[in-house]
Design a protein around this nucleic acid. Sequence first.
DNA 1: CTGAAAGCGCTTACAG
DNA 2: CTGAAAGCGCTTACAG
Lengths: 346, 346
Amino acid sequence: MTPMATQKEIARRAGVSVSVVSAVLNGTTHTRMSDETRARIEAAIAEVGYVPNDAARALRRQQAGTIAVVVEKLENPAYKELFHGIYEAAEARGWAVVLGDTVWMRSGSHFLARLLGRGSIDAILLRHDGLIDEEALAHLRARPTPVVLLERQSDPQDPWVAVDDSAAARLATEHLIEFGHTDIAFVGGTAGQPSTARYEGYVAAMNDARLSPREHLFTGFGAESGVRGLTELRSGDVLPTAVVVANVMSAVGLLAAAADAGIDVPRRLSVVGIHDVEIADVVRPSLTTVRLPMRALGVRAVEELSALLSGAPMEPGVIADPPPQVIARSSTAPAPAELTSRSDEL
Amino acid sequence: MTPMATQKEIARRAGVSVSVVSAVLNGTTHTRMSDETRARIEAAIAEVGYVPNDAARALRRQQAGTIAVVVEKLENPAYKELFHGIYEAAEARGWAVVLGDTVWMRSGSHFLARLLGRGSIDAILLRHDGLIDEEALAHLRARPTPVVLLERQSDPQDPWVAVDDSAAARLATEHLIEFGHTDIAFVGGTAGQPSTARYEGYVAAMNDARLSPREHLFTGFGAESGVRGLTELRSGDVLPTAVVVANVMSAVGLLAAAADAGIDVPRRLSVVGIHDVEIADVVRPSLTTVRLPMRALGVRAVEELSALLSGAPMEPGVIADPPPQVIARSSTAPAPAELTSRSDEL
DNA sequence: CTGAAAGCGCTTACAG
DNA sequence: CTGAAAGCGCTTACAG
């Protein structure tokens, strides 16, 4: 096995020109050749253990066959299904997928350079919750590399696809309302998509039920955010009987904080998290969540990218099918009777 | 801004040859030139918004400046720090990092092709727990692309670095022994690294304390594995008073199963998980863990890769500094007195 | 049915 | 101080 064999070497061994070697490798041109020639070439290919040079191929074809997926907080378990969907759809189209975290995209990083440069990445799928710096975003927009955003954009200068965050929060809220809750809070996220869309869904559900929505408590992401969320709720006049948490890890953090504070979930406080992930099923009490079609989001995103690359951009939009779905577990229950009637007490 | 400007276009605008353009871009050759020329070229570069073509560069330089990191179960929270360490060390050496999951590496995938091919990936960091198929591994080994394994190898034909899994499990076990436990089980993982190393550490600690180790319960990974682990433990004659779990998510799953079964953690059963991740602090009872230097592992792995690429391979080995460390939380407590003396009861 | 040649965009000896 | 040229490994019209 010759480590670095090229088509030239194969051509030499098989006594043909590189054109023919390339032809048997790609099957695009020179399709007609004698079986004997083809066999000789295939033997030589196997003999040297040929692997193509992707850089040369990318340069010549003017496309790398690779797309990048960049998300904020790679460790977010909600991305598991998203990645799977993206991977499957990309493979089906002949693309390799590479992943990265938005924190790697800081100005001047080699990672960013690879995204901005041409030749090694054909397109980018980007999901962020507002923590990415504007400079990096501006860099991206200034490049010809297509970028599809995995979140709703009010100003659709960038193509985007998104799950229905608003509907998800609406469902979560309605689930609580059906349980008789009237004082429901909304906690978590930052000012920006997708948190804002979720808050809007919550407000809509509250308004529909003629209930007063509370202010959006921007506590950020992660378990710590849930802990802070409960602290803020307890520092108010009245502790609500239920809370919608913008993010599943925050919801788990809020659950822990409630346990530590001796607040009984779900009897005194019901909790719903957005995004159904494994951990929701594993904490105690188990967490009621809203399942969002993250896998379908990944598939749609790749389709959008594909359309974009072929010059036929699709309508940006929200994934309607499958719709978000409440997964009821043990963290939600009917509102405590004594509180819904009088609405006081800590 | 001309979307696809090349050095040729810049040279034309500045009235120089591409050699000089390349020189100001890279600063390697043609270092002496008139300030006026340099200024004119820099102006042209800014004017067209030049970005290099990475494929052309990679082809010419015969290196891509990108390393791939492939792990099993991307969603494992223990990787968060590992990725961070790898990223920092790689950036410092001028490499971009791309991530992928081992399940993407199945034969014939475009992702695998990109790893196997030359030109776009200079080297690979690979971590797996035995779930990767041998065929993919054989493919990798047959290529000249350097691979560093992020786990201990008994047969060091591949370079490797690893955290001290054995010491971690030993510490976990000793922590329980200090609490007076004598009947301690070991649950989780598969037959293979790093689970085996952890089991060995457990056995060593038990032997040192003249206690009888139990059999390794191979239940796999993830929360489900912990649930199965508890089921198996309960189906035995005697439920141990403590358990070391090979994997932190499995430990959380075991905690949930214990709660559901009405087994009091930590008063009836103490639980320790390997790997300190955020979730350990957020479940209730919070989970005692052993913290492993995953960030240092990432840094060392990149150093090893760097040495390998420069033809001076380092000694493979275990990261001794910082050493593993027990993070005591609420899932471990002194052994129940009535059980350590009589050792029966369910 | 097969080969010679151009060219993707870059870097780097080499010549002047 | 600057330019012309070769060549990295591939694909693809084009010619025969």
